[in-house]
């Protein structure tokens, strides 16, 4: 907004004259900081390759954003910080090593980061206009193009190095071999899985920071996780042989990182608290359905992408009743 300054040196501008200090980049870098415990856990469990993956994904995401801005003849939008968050999230939700050849694994990550930014965000008009969570768009694209690589899992190694030791995820082991994983291992993260999702405690630390900084509210995570808790508990009670116990579902896979870091993405989730409750419950139902009866062992990504798709509808259904228009008014 243009501010005019007159000959007395006094500025004219429309109210409000005070602004809160928070800003879009501050929010983005708060999210990035909140992901540091996950990144640290990834390095602890999977070794130095975790840092390499993160650097490649963040770098590729930033480069893709910069190139897109140049191609559109627009000023660079890197300053808003969202490309860093997208690159970081993508690295954390991909398998640590997707190919025996390190270069191939990293190459897949570069493709994923570029797709996240270009097809996940910039093509809609940039930050704020995207329908889907960009990092999940990138992951879904890779899932379709490199299905084998995306399901190549590495067991966490006590002597982390750059060589790959294949393992399986706890959800995969249950789905295909009916084998449960120890809950303590799931909580601390010493299990196979995507880079940043294996440690529940690391995700919770970051989530606590997001709550403290008021970047997220309870509405989506609590309803999302709560729905999974209720649904899986009921199904386990109905048929313990076919369905894993509730705590196993709660702590395994990408449920936590999805609930706190991806479902809560401001751009792609509903605006009102009421809409966020709908989003959380809907997402929780979908992830439960996929995990319990679907072909895939894990359903967090598709549950969030599906709810992203219907977020504009949820926003339309949950427009608040304006003061003076509802039953409270005597009109």
């Amino acid at each position: 907004m243009a501010h005019a300054t007159n000959e007395m040196g006094l500025e004219l501008a429309s109210s409000p004259h005070l602004r809160d200090r928070d800003s879009v980049p501050a929010i983005m870098y708060t999210v990035a900081m909140a992901l540091l415990p996950c990144a640290a856990a990834a390095v602890y469990f999977f070794g130095i390759i975790a840092l390499l993956n993160i650097a490649v994904c963040v770098g590729a995401a930033m480069l893709a954003e910069w190139l897109t801005c140049r191609a559109r003849g627009r000023p660079s939008s890197l300053r808003d910080g969202s490309a860093v968050v997208t690159g970081l999230l993508l690295a954390l939700v991909l398998p640590p090593r997707m190919s025996p050849h390190l270069a191939s694994s990293l190459q897949i990550m570069v493709v994923g980061a570029a797709v996240s930014i270009v097809l996940g965000k910039m093509i809609y008009g940039g930050l704020g206009f995207n329908v889907f969570n960009p990092a999940l768009i990138g992951r879904a694209f890779l899932m379709a193009c490199y299905p084998v690589a995306l399901t190549t899992w590495t067991a966490p190694s006590p002597f982390p190095g750059l060589q790959a030791v294949t393992g399986a995820t706890p959800l995969g082991m249950f789905k295909f071999e009916r084998q449960l994983t120890d809950l303590g291992q799931l909580f601390w993260g010493n299990v196979g899985g995507s880079l940043g999702e294996t440690s529940a405690v690391a995700v919770l630390l970051g989530a606590a920071f997001l709550f403290y900084r008021k970047v997220i509210t309870w509405h989506i995570p609590v309803t999302y996780l709560g729905t999974v808790v209720v649904f899986t508990a009921i199904m386990h009670a109905v048929d313990p042989a076919a369905f894993a116990p509730m705590p196993f579902h709660l702590l395994s896979g990408g449920l936590f990182i999805g609930a706190f870091f991806m479902a809560t993405d401001m751009v792609t989730s509903p605006t009102t608290h009421r809409g966020q409750l709908v989003f959380g419950i809907g997402g929780g139902l979908i992830v439960s359905l996929i995990r319990l009866w679907g072909g895939y062992p894990e359903g967090v990504m598709y549950s969030i992408l599906f709810m992203n798709a219907i977020t504009p509808l949820i926003n339309r259904w949950t427009v608040p009743t304006i003061y003076g228009h509802g039953k409270g008014g005597a009109a």
Partner: peptide
Amino acid sequence: QLAPAREYPCIRCGRCV
């Protein structure tokens, strides 16, 4: 006190709501 601030696109955070 007035600290002019750079405008960014709406990220639909819902704080205004």
